[in-house]
Nucleic acid binder design. Sequence first.
DNA 1: GAAAGTATGTTGAAATTTCAACAAAAGGTG
DNA 2: CACCTTTTGTTGAAATTTCAACATACTTTC
Lengths: 219, 219
Amino acid sequence: MEKYLEVLRWCPLFKGIADENLLRMLTCLGARVEFFDKKYTIIAEGDKAKFIGIVLSGAVQMINTDFYGNRSIVAVSEKGEMFSEAFACAEIESIPVSVIATEPSEIMLINCSHILHTCTNNCGFHQQMIFNLMKNLAVKNIQFHQKLEVTSKRSTREKLLAYLTVCEKKAGSTSFDIPFDRQELADYLGVERSGLSAEISKLKKEGVINADKKRFELL
Amino acid sequence: MEKYLEVLRWCPLFKGIADENLLRMLTCLGARVEFFDKKYTIIAEGDKAKFIGIVLSGAVQMINTDFYGNRSIVAVSEKGEMFSEAFACAEIESIPVSVIATEPSEIMLINCSHILHTCTNNCGFHQQMIFNLMKNLAVKNIQFHQKLEVTSKRSTREKLLAYLTVCEKKAGSTSFDIPFDRQELADYLGVERSGLSAEISKLKKEGVINADKKRFELL
DNA sequence: GAAAGTATGTTGAAATTTCAACAAAAGGTG
DNA sequence: CACCTTTTGTTGAAATTTCAACATACTTTC
């Protein structure tokens, strides 16, 4: 597990926990690492919601596919971030989305009940970890607020600009990469790909943005 | 505070805490109760995100108003439920939405730092409360997933039916009341009121639903 | 480096939503 | 009960989005 230390130090779950304690905890938690190729399903809709995932390398998307096969991208987790923690913490039966690797990815899986229901009173690191988990859940909540703010806009143009503004803030620069190709961006924003492409072109012509592949710039 | 005991027992924050401990904790937490008339603002966008709110009576809505004045209803909290807990727990600067009373409401306000940063190691009830708070954050997360699933549908009809299906599940009956009037429902679903009214009429004619004011039935 | 496959941009027609305006119904108030 | 206000339903025109189809650019594979 040593080779993952650098990523794990960045993971919100282990904030404030020293390396040597972290490594011991991983054993105690029964953490295991699995590799998934691009496009592979890490957790399928309907699976038991037992595990918290941590992205050690690569990236994953939470996908919601409806009755008619329409894909909606709910969220993205990148290196060092967690996923599926809300489902595991809420102790619901099964997970309502699928988690897909969008690149070859190494994923750490931890049975959430090991975090919630083991030695909660004795071990200080454990308390810290539960606190970290709570804070992370709150942060994810806020991210949902942001996503709702973006997708609740009525037009493709407004959704796109709202999303790019969020990215700009996150990146701390007017120029940044987004984690989506055009079809994925459309599925994330809840709009039509062709209309999205048209809108991007229009905004380029108007001199509002620059865009090339996944790189965007707000002018 | 005794007169609020019945509601507070139902509040997810105090689950598993006996009445006598609960009352002592309220003092320790510095909980206070305020009354708000219908349409009054409990927390305004931009306010410091210090407080967790608990609805003792009445109901509140989380409202997001954009630059152009378009209203979007993010969520509703009813009797016994919490609000603003994610903002407080994430310890962000200021709250990005407004919380409005939709009926005359009694609201309990608790400074979240009193929950997170006081006697966390000594007091068992306190540990329980933090655990409850975490679980509630996870549940709210899942509710956001549900809302996204509803609002990510492309047509007014699909959004409405998806929302009504969620209500049906929650109510455990094909007939139920929704917490919105027509304009509010439109602002919650992210559609036009007139189009929504038209769609409701259509679904009634087709025999798919019954609807009268806030009461709906799925046929 | 050629071939196949994937991603992106473009376009016009069809469908849907938004907008504005009004009428009818319901609710609140003196 | 009459008046005023708010809510809801309806409608048609304008704007926007979706859909389908195709051309081009870019990637991957052999």
